[in-house]
Design a protein around this nucleic acid. Structure first.
Length: 576
DNA sequence: ACGAAATACACCTAATAGCA
DNA sequence: TGCTATTAGGTGTATTTCGT
């Protein structure tokens, strides 16, 4: 969930932090996750966490030490010192040495145990990142006077995933959580900037958050320059960037086949700060089907039917909620709840007030919007014409205390779910069956957590086709394989993607122009769309009387890499 | 031949959906 | 009602084929 609006909100709350010279960085290594890759090559300033297997073994280390999930000792940071041969951080003046240190950098070590100067107003959000500038006051040996100490500066760059936030917390609550134990409280703090009365705590229960410690002088700015402009802080730049020739070329060139929802949520180069929920809401606002090809959206600038204009307008309108009086009134910076992690009810009320689509089964639209959708044919045919006197009921009666509210009409929203399943086929037995002239054994699902519906059976037949093609290939090498290994052709797994759940309320099916959009994330997407319009392909199918109730799903063999292009068949002509 | 594109997967656990 | 299985989030990297 953490997306542009979330980061902006976090930064706004943290701006109330009271000024203090004496913050202290505290780290809780047991709430970090093992990093699967060595980031030191790409991010020299990033504190690399080293998988246990790369830690040189020492005779006196216990089993417990060796099973640590990453380089930090789980019991205390101090024990890390005994693990590495060269644990001494470099002096802050020798900046070059940060890069020369292999596997980790000195910035984190420099921060620890030092006086850290931090101001709430320094904390910024940019896209999907939070930046915390810090001044490190390094006390000299003979003086602990922070004011006169030599200084250097660093940025902490924070990126959260699910359930990750940074929050302002009283020192009292912080101490309480530590005393009770973070596990028992369910509050797992990863990093904390601890002041005498106030703290900034970073949490991410799923441990997917990432933190960078950047050299402020060397980097210049804390955010990732590879990402596009922040739509909240620089809306004009954001829009301009999406209207450049380079962006147009990227989304419209022949090889680009992505859907707009996938391109908005995958990567931050063009749609920085926008994730799954923001994308769903923005597309809803713009009356753009999430699975519209990006190519079509961006080409609209040439054909002048305004799809890109609608999209960019919707982006502005969506993030414009942060500027409304309602936001300032109902989303307080100063929480009056018992815990810093609790959100006031008024806040969730605010967000639920304008989010219409994401993870919702129905959407309520004003009558004017309903008419708009109807006018352009974006509504399911089930939704009929409005009564002649609909204008009479635009506003509910209301009372003196509560004025009448704008009457809305409820529309169903699509919820699509896709699930990957595995099927196993024994090519050897099939080859044998073919040699002996008997019928092929049926393809068996290797596991099937859900009941097989006709949809999945349909996809299974697709898998059968692929398996048959593989079988033909296998026959080419049949003799050779048998003579070498003596084992014949091995069994092989095929993975296929099937529709687990039909569109909510099952009124009609969406036919997707490009089946690639089914698997846009490798995860299981849940799409909420505002309206249901019929694609050209669906129109053609209806006309030809061949409209299937489900849709064809792309087949996956389970191996990574770009999928090979399907050969064009005669049937494809029906889809034009 | 080589850059670009598109896929899987690793990394987690609270909350929820589904089932007995 | 209690138990088990599934789901959500975002990014870097590996792996494969496409397009030129």
């Amino acid at each position: 969930m953490p997306e542009g609006m979330t980061y902006s909100d976090i930064a706004r709350r943290l701006s109330l932090l009271e000024y203090s010279e004496k913050f202290e960085l505290r780290i809780f290594p047991e709430y970090f996750v093992k990093e699967p890759f060595d980031y030191s090559k790409r991010f020299p300033s990033f504190r690399v966490v080293i998988p246990a297997k790369t830690i040189p073994m020492k005779a006196n280390r216990s089993i417990r030490d060796r099973t640590k999930v990453f380089g930090f000792s789980s019991t205390s940071k101090r024990r890390l010192v005994s693990v590495f041969d060269n644990p001494v951080p470099p002096p802050s003046t020798e900046r070059k040495s940060w890069k020369t240190l292999e596997g980790r950098d000195g910035l984190l070590d420099l921060c620890e145990g030092q006086f850290l100067t931090l101001r709430g107003t320094w904390i910024e959000a940019y896209g999907k990142e939070l930046g915390i500038p810090l001044i490190i006051s390094k006390p000299s040996m003979d003086s602990l006077d922070a004011a006169s100490a030599p200084r250097t500066s660093t940025f902490i760059r924070a990126h959260f995933a699910q359930h990750g936030i940074a929050a302002l917390m009283s020192r009292k609550e912080y101490d309480h959580i530590l005393n009770v134990g973070m596990e028992s409280e369910g509050k797992r703090i990863q990093l904390a900037l601890v002041g005498p009365t106030q703290c900034v705590v970073f949490t991410d229960n799923n441990k997917l958050a990432r933190y960078w410690f950047l050299d402020a002088v060397q980097e210049g700015q804390w955010w990732n320059e590879d990402n596009g402009p922040c739509p909240i802080r620089f809306p004009d730049l954001f829009e301009k960037h999406l209207r450049t020739r380079e962006t147009y070329d990227h989304f419209t060139k022949g090889s680009h086949r992505g859907s707009i929802v996938a391109d908005m949520t995958n990567g931050n180069k063009y749609f920085n700060g926008i994730g799954t929920s923001h994308a769903a809401e923005i597309l809803h606002l713009a009356c753009i089907h999430p699975e519209t090809l990006s190519k079509d959206v961006f080409e609209s600038t040439i054909s002048f039917n305004g799809t890109l204009d609608r999209l960019l307008k919707a982006v502005r309108e969506f993030f414009g909620h942060l500027e409304t009086q309602r936001y300032k009134q109902f989303v307080p910076t100063r929480s009056n709840t018992l815990s810093a992690f609790e959100n006031p009810a008024s806040q969730s009320g605010f967000y639920n007030g304008f989010t219409k689509v994401y993870r919702k089964a129905v959407v309520r639209v004003p009558l004017t919007h309903y008419m708009y959708l109807k006018r352009w044919g974006w509504l399911d045919p089930r939704y009929g014409e409005l009564k002649a006197n609909w204008e009479d009921d635009l506003v509910t009666p209301g009372t003196i205390e509560y004025p009448g509210r704008l009457r809305t009409k409820e529309l169903e929203v699509y919820k699509l779910k896709f699930v990957s399943q595995k099927a196993m086929i024994n090519l050897h037995s099939r080859a044998k069956a073919k040699r002996e002239g008997i019928e092929h054994p049926t393809l068996q699902p290797a596991y099937d957590p859900t009941p097989i519906t006709w949809h999945t059976l349909h996809e299974l037949s697709q898998v059968q086709d692929t398996a048959a093609a593989d079988l033909a290939d296998a026959f080419e090498n049949d003799v050779q394989e048998e003579s070498v290994s003596g084992k014949g052709i091995p069994a092989r797994f095929y993975t296929y993607t099937a529709i687990k759940q039909q569109p909510y309320a099952g009124g009609s099916a969406i036919i997707v122009p490009n089946t690639n959009t089914l698997n846009y994330k490798g995860n299981i997407p849940e799409l909420g769309v505002a309206s249901n319009f019929q694609t050209k392909k669906e129109d053609a199918l209806i006309r030809s009387g061949m409209k299937p109730a489900g849709r064809r799903a792309s087949i996956h063999t389970g191996k990574p890499g770009r999928p090979s292009k399907r050969k064009r068949s005669d049937r494809d002509d029906l889809w034009r």
